[in-house]
Design a protein around this nucleic acid. Structure first.
Lengths: 344, 344
DNA sequence: TCGATAGATTGAGTCGTTTCAAGATCGGCT
DNA sequence: AGCCGATCTTGAAACGACTCAATCTATCGA
């Protein structure tokens, strides 16, 4: 791979001149400039970004760590962040923690070694690496958390208005005539989940529906386990609707419905957080709470870039909450008389 | 951010010794080693990967460029590639070309400047950057193409056995009793699409069904446009089944079915390449040709790493074709008498 | 014609690490 | 005691690009 020196020799100028042509920071006369550009083309010269970064200590690189690329939400976040990064001349590199704590630590360390100038982090399940993050921020590498907001961490974050979104979803179910609304949720250890629970309670309270603790199943994010709790709940408590606070949980619930031969919305109403996929093409189409994933990524990257641009500013953590929207489809339509006998 | 020199000073040794402790390439006595490790911890030292790369000219980094992260296929490929990379101590960085030719060129250039040691490329739509790829390979940066295989390019590639997969899918439809099988496909400019067409023709020929040209609609990969062609075709040619050769096309067809109020499989049979999503939860569940996306990524990365490990080997391009599998669900079940009157 | 000045060009030093050759230390053996 | 070899430790030279200070060139006015 050719170097700046090779270009300089071929063009018959000094390395300084070539550098000036590349960066444009210092004017270069037209004839020399032309010769340099010709030499660059001739040698297929690609400036060594590594050497450049070493000297300038600027990599113009942002990192994003997501727990699972195969959940549709995260690619959207990445695209948003990438868009913002590109507008500022930055490159975004995406890596996957596989929802593993150790791997996440390793990736943070790698990104730090690679001297990413800032990091977007959607934390993996389990305890968040608070100490590591704090050290990075102290070392001058800003970190912005997206989606999941770790407890006990003072840092910038961008996510959705969890409680409002949950409240709207549950209010919608109530309006549609459902009363015994079960809440299928993820681990209470996650702040987002607690916030969504809050919205659920608020909606019930405002509709003067008594809270029934046995209709709330906090669980893990394993789709199969969720399906099991759902089966269990339907045997004993007979809810007439389910609100799922996240996609894996929602899928688990749908799986249980299938096994129980329950139809939506005839037998049971259903709303879930997050688009499960192309929900509108299938029947019954699923009513979902849609998170503004692209915007979350975009805003998060913007905050990060701002921090990078003004590193000396005092760090009052910024916490942006974007509104979600309810996309009403079939699974939450008003209850109707079933046309033929079903178990219920 | 602390440097190796700071560590050396704190531990009271030379920078060379610290380096030896880090890399383990030269033995270091226990007492010194302990002092060095303590100093590293004390200073929260993270070796500057940039300086290291500059010196060793090894970045231990692989790049992957995909056209669209939000298509579920690609995240799977990335996970496969990442797994293989990690096994060899490499980090994979993923970037998104947004299916834009210029952006793809730019990303190739960036990855080259960043000195990625090898590149996995799922080419964007439009003409492939053959020249650029060839120059990279000549410069010693191996490139392996995944999924889409550009014409006119002599390079390693990993993708699916297109024609066999298509043939199996169409044979399945024939076996289920469908005869007028339409082929909804992407641009003929793509080699994969031509291969899938081949499989379709082979299946028809073997079943002695005459090929009807008007049942084949090559198109672009725009879901809305596909839906339009589909409407058109159903008005004039009345196929009794449709095989879609890729996911966006498949979605377009389903959208048209919805608009035409056609039910599957009662009114029309349907099989598509690629999982559309959680196809099995909805009704009717979609019969799909499942590509081994993870394996494609994994094998591609392995080939890449092999090339990197043995750069001087002559480059007979390796072309791996992995088998796809047919996941039979509802939309291709045998035709049955409709229970009530439907348009047909 | 000459000096001053603005502008273009150059070259050396630097970033943080690896690595090689050379120096230091130590124990064992004669 | 002195020497040898094995083992550990050190220092300095790279890697490739940027950048500052210094040099060079040309232009213009006196």
């Amino acid at each position: 791979m050719s170097t700046i020196k090779a270009v300089a020799d071929l063009a018959g100028v000094s390395v300084g001149t070539v550098s000036h042509v590349m960066t444009g920071s210092v004017p270069v006369s037209e004839p020399l400039r032309t010769r340099v550009l010709a030499a660059i083309r001739e040698l297929d010269y690609h400036p060594n970004h590594i050497a450049r970064s070493l000297k300038t200590s600027r990599t113009r690189t942002l990192g994003i760590i997501v727990p699972d690329l195969t959940i549709p939400f995260f690619p959207q976040v990445i695209r948003g962040a990438e868009t913002a990064a590109r507008e500022h001349g930055y490159t975004l590199i995406a890596v996957n923690s596989d929802d593993s704590g150790p791997r996440q630590k390793e990736l943070l360390s790698i990104l730090r070694s690679q001297r990413a100038e800032g990091i977007l982090l959607a934390v993996a399940a389990g305890p968040a690496p608070v100490g590591q993050i704090t050290r990075m921020v102290q070392a001058g590498i800003p970190v912005v958390c997206v989606d999941r907001i770790p407890d006990r961490l003072v840092a910038d974050s961008v996510s959705v208005q969890d409680s409002q979104a949950a409240q709207i979803a549950v209010e919608h179910l109530i309006e549609m005539g459902y009363r015994r609304i079960a809440l299928a949720m993820g681990p209470l250890a996650l702040k987002n989940e607690r916030r969504r629970l809050l919205g659920y309670r608020r909606a019930l309270r405002q509709a003067q529906i008594a809270l029934e603790r046995s209709l709330i199943w906090p669980g893990n994010l394993n789709t199969a386990d969720v399906a099991a709790s759902c089966l269990e709940c339907f045997q004993h408590r007979k809810p007439d609707a389910v609100f799922a606070t996240n996609a894996p949980t929602g899928l688990g619930v749908l799986r249980a419905f299938r096994d129980l031969k329950l139809r939506t919305p005839e037998d049971v109403g259903f709303v879930t957080f997050d688009e499960l996929s192309v929900d509108d093409l299938f029947s019954p189409a699923v009513t979902t709470v849609v998170q503004p994933a692209f915007d979350i990524g975009f805003r998060a990257a913007e905050i990060l870039l701002e921090r990078i641009a003004q590193p000396e500013l005092p760090r009052d953590p910024i916490s942006v909450r974007l509104p979600a929207s309810l996309r009403v489809r079939d699974t939450s339509r008003s209850r109707v008389e079933p046309c033929c006998a079903t178990q219920n």
